[in-house]
Simulated scan of single mutants.
Amino acid sequence: MSRAAVTSTPINPVLANRWSPRSYDATKTLTKADLNASFEAARWSPSANNSQPWRFIVGFRGDETFNKIVPTLAGWNSAWMPNASAIIVAVAQTAGADGTPNHYALYDLGQSVAHFSVQAQTDGLYVHQVAGTDVEALKEAFNLPAGYEAFLTIAVGKLAPADDLPEALAEREKAPRVRHELAEIVRYDAFED
């Protein structure tokens, strides 16, 4: 079953084929080297004033870091995410050492994760970003300093069949991909009342 996006105009095939699976192959492992290109892509993403406020904490299935992340996963995420080869905590430096807020930190973190995910897809890996995580527990578990906030977790790995998931998740995995139409998200004038 193809998961490629049905687009209204052609787009880069890597972007069209990028999606966020929940079914990861628990027998596949990754190494630091396997993620280097994706982190390099994240490193070179744009940021306000070149502040580069992103940081990443990486756990590989079975290691101590991974085992600290798993208990922070909420709801359904705790059922499928531990099968991923790696789980990454995306951290934003939201304030400088003097306490001055960086109002663009989360936007910049998002751009870096987007770059990461496109490079990972190019390299045959699949990425699923998850907000359903106890970020306060992550902050404590990894002793984040003042001015740094855990924002979300990211599963990375190789695909497994959707039928390996619990039935409700398998159905979601196989459901058609949908997006708002361009006319709904792109405006060339002011919003109307």
Rank of each mutant, 00 (worst) to 15 (best):
M1N: 12
A4S: 15
A4Q: 15
S8R: 14
T9I: 13
N12R: 01
P13I: 04
V14E: 07
L15F: 01
L15D: 05
L15V: 08
N17W: 05
W19E: 01
S20K: 00
P21M: 02
S23E: 05
S23C: 08
Y24G: 07
D25V: 04
K28F: 08
K28T: 10
T31E: 07
T31R: 08
K32Q: 14
A33T: 10
D34P: 05
S38R: 05
E40V: 02
A42C: 05
R43Q: 10
S45N: 11
S47C: 09
S47V: 06
A48T: 10
N49C: 15
N49G: 13
S51E: 13
Q52R: 14
Q52W: 10
W54S: 08
W54R: 09
R55P: 00
R55I: 05
R55C: 02
F56G: 05
F56V: 04
G59R: 10
R61K: 10
E64D: 15
E64Q: 14
T65R: 09
T65L: 08
T65K: 11
F66E: 09
K68C: 01
I69K: 07
I69R: 06
P71N: 04
P71F: 04
S78A: 14
S78I: 09
A79E: 13
W80I: 07
W80S: 04
P82G: 09
A84S: 04
A84R: 01
I88A: 12
V89T: 04
V89Y: 07
A90Q: 10
A97L: 13
D98P: 03
G99T: 05
T100Y: 13
T100D: 12
N102C: 01
A105P: 02
L106K: 10
L109R: 01
V113Y: 06
A114Q: 15
H115N: 14
H115Q: 13
F116V: 00
V118Y: 08
V118I: 11
A120D: 03
T122I: 08
D123L: 00
G124M: 07
L125D: 06
Q129D: 05
Q129S: 00
V130T: 09
G132Q: 03
T133H: 13
D134S: 03
E136G: 12
L138K: 04
L144C: 05
L144H: 04
G147T: 02
A150T: 01
T153P: 10
A155T: 00
A155L: 00
G157F: 00
K158L: 12
L159A: 09
L159D: 08
P161A: 10
D163S: 15
L165Y: 00
P166T: 01
E167R: 14
A168C: 09
A170T: 06
E173L: 00
A175V: 11
A175W: 07
P176I: 08
P176A: 14
R179T: 11
L182D: 15
L182V: 14
V186M: 11
V186A: 12
Y188W: 15
A190K: 13
D193N: 14
